[in-house]
Design a protein around this nucleic acid. Structure first.
Lengths: 243, 243
DNA sequence: ATCGCGTAAATTGTATGCAGCATGCAAAAA
DNA sequence: TTTTTGCATGCTGCATACAATTTACGCGAT
């Protein structure tokens, strides 16, 4: 909790909390507000389905309503909040159905990314991937959950970037932010560490072999498996209409 | 004392062009502004790379800067305009490279959509698709270019909706709006009408046969072909790094 | 003539005030 | 007691006023 009761303007050098982005460029208030809200939503501090009054939030974040409303529009476009006319915005719900759709779409995007990456990856790309894989295996052995997840996510992002396709990467980003929220819900849900690590290894092998089809198929299946595992921890009774 | 009593708003109730949605819900000013700008950008009335001053546009659209700025954020999220700090927003560029990436991503999304649709389509869905196909063939024979394009787009949208995956549909929508802009540039560029019609027929057949893999493969290839044809009319010398 | 610098104009970013709509409570009628 | 109508309140939507930042321009020095 930050100082909501005092000090609305700590404009100077409030560390814009580069979560994982090393780029510390100074952002406008609406960007900061959006970033702040994004992490609040992902962490569940703003629970799904809850309503967010502009005035309240603006005071809480220390900005006026104008930039906050702009931030709302952005988050709505990302699918994190839901805007209804003349009503308080609502944090997007997180139904089981929706989560599965999310991972399904994500799997499709990452499949394509892997297919392209298999063709377009440079040796540097592959080297970086190998490094990440090694580090992830280390965290896996040591049981470092947070680090494991961080590297895991970075591997996926790296593969998507290796596809050298900006629109694809952007679409991936927005879906990922939503998926992270679900993942946070079922914190540390992924008990299939071992499977996951092995799958990543297979994917890496396919990429190194420049096997487009295999890389895509494996990564797609991997993402779907992750989604299924997530759903199983959330709802003991998974009645998926799997594809 | 505001300019609303007389002003330049000649089109008070400009039908906000419900894309194909029969729901004519009255939208807020920022939504209307966004819709208006969207079509202006697609039609090239706001040329790629051009700068848009808030004050100018707000007067031109007959709204104040506040809702206009909100609209800007939305369009930026859709990738139609580019926002830089303390500078005039810029209409997103339309380089050949970027267009190809766009169609590549679109092909991936529609491939997945077709795969899912092949499994999930109801008989009603397929019937609707057959109707659309027939109508499109009619427009094709009669050389009705506009109608042909309209139906064509609707077929693609229908297939995506048949996948019953909201995030996927949303991602598709934003990419489509960008693609339309490119398509408008090379107006009536698609001289491969006949091919296109045949490809659609094949896709429909695959869907009816519930052949997931074929439907996805065919639709993906079809979209890529469309992109290639588009690029060939834009740049006589296509130096694509095709996949 | 060119570069540097400082001031002014223009433009974006933020805050605030006001009007309209929605919701809840209270009062009146059945 | 139950239902309906009117009113009060709070919140969103928009416009405008204000602050900060960038850009343009002119003047003087090298």
């Amino acid at each position: 909790m930050n100082g909501s009761n005092e000090a609305h303007v700590q404009q100077k050098s409030e560390t814009p909390k580069g979560r994982k982005s090393p780029k510390l460029k100074r952002m406008g208030l609406h960007e900061r507000a959006a970033a702040r809200m994004r992490t609040m939503i992902i962490r569940g501090e703003l629970p799904p389905g809850s309503q967010t009054q502009e005035t309240r939030l603006s005071k809480e974040l220390g900005v006026s309503r104008t930039p906050l409303r702009e931030a709302m529009k952005v988050l709505a476009a990302e699918g994190l909040i839901e805007l209804r006319p003349n009503r308080s915005p609502r944090i997007a719900g997180l139904a089981v159905e929706g989560i599965w759709e999310l991972f399904e779409a994500l799997a499709g995007i990452e499949r394509l990314a892997a297919e392209l990456a298999a063709v377009r990856a440079t040796e540097r790309d592959l080297a970086r991937l190998r490094t990440l894989q090694t580090r992830m295996e280390g965290h896996h052995r040591n049981g470092k959950l947070d680090d494991y997840f961080a590297i895991n996510g970075e591997i996926h992002n790296t593969i998507v970037r290796m596809a050298r396709n900006t629109p694809l990467r952007e679409a991936h980003e927005t879906l990922i932010s939503r998926a992270k929220r679900a993942r946070y819900l079922a914190l540390g849900a992924d008990r299939r560490w071992s499977n996951s690590v092995d799958e990543h290894a297979s994917i890496l092998a396919a990429l190194e072999a420049r096997d487009s089809e295999a890389a895509g198929r494996l990564l797609g299946a991997h993402v779907r498996q992750t989604g299924i595992a997530l759903l199983e921890t959330l709802a003991p009774k998974p009645k998926l209409s799997a594809a």
